[in-house]
């Protein structure tokens, strides 16, 4: 089977993602920023940590790399898994770094958590919100998807982020999570699946999701 390729934009720790994919049985895992590796990947992983401005700049400054990644995001181009910034970057824009234009694959925006969710209309009893949202939180599965196979609804995954995605388009929302407000924990469309949480750090359920990914053909029909 062609390799699983993890897109390397030089921003952060990709070793854990690679190790986790190897652990669940991926034959060959490449960490690469080489456009031809990205084009030839069987399964593509788009991870990311840190600041989205830096992340998007890497894609824009390296035009060929940016073009290769965009090609892979097209509906027929084979399975892609976005992780953390790899989810946020799929939307139109993020508030981070003074406003960052993103890839615009999915309709929606990325906003910063407000330290006081009460100002966003939450109940008075809601405790003050710590930022970053860091730790294990429950994911409600909003649609059936091959990547949820073997994972019960409401299981906890590891999150660490200060910005979150929201959208008026409910069709692509595969999972949500509650942290003062409900936000998009997983997005899915055609060959894309993306998580705000870190499956590579989410123990058994995270490894199950990665297992499902490497066996996924990139068609988001629920398999029965």
């Amino acid at each position: 089977m062609p390799a699983v390729v993890i897109v390397n934009l030089g921003t952060g720790n990709l070793r854990s993602v690679r190790k986790a994919l190897e652990h669940v049985g991926a034959d060959e895992v490449l960490v690469s920023g080489n456009p031809s590796d990205i084009r030839n990947a069987g399964h593509l992983v788009l991870p990311g940590q840190g600041a989205i401005g830096t992340w998007m700049r890497q894609l824009e400054h390296n035009e060929e790399l940016g073009a290769a990644v965009r090609e892979r995001l097209a509906p027929e181009a084979g399975p892609v898994l976005g992780i953390c910034l790899g989810l946020q970057a799929l939307y139109d824009a993020s508030e981070e770094n003074g406003g960052t234009r993103c890839l615009g694959i999915l309709e929606g925006a990325v906003r910063r958590f407000d330290a006081d969710p009460r100002s966003a209309g939450a109940a008075d009893a809601t405790p003050r919100r710590k930022i970053p949202h860091m730790g294990w939180n429950q994911v409600r599965q909003e649609s059936a998807h091959p990547l949820w196979r073997g994972i019960d609804d409401g299981r906890r995954f590891y999150f660490v982020h200060s910005y979150y995605a929201e959208s008026d388009d409910a069709d692509h929302v595969a999972g949500t999570c509650e942290y003062g407000n409900r936000f998009i924990a997983a997005a899915a469309r055609d060959n894309l699946f993306a998580t705000q949480f870190h499956p590579e750090k989410s123990q058994r359920d995270g490894l199950q999701l990665l297992t499902n990914f490497i066996h996924w053909n990139g068609v988001s029909q629920p398999c029965s």
Partner: peptide, 8 residues
């Protein structure tokens, strides 16, 4: 909020 308290 259902964020779990972590034990480390």
């Amino acid at each position: 909020m259902s964020l779990a308290c972590r034990v480390i």
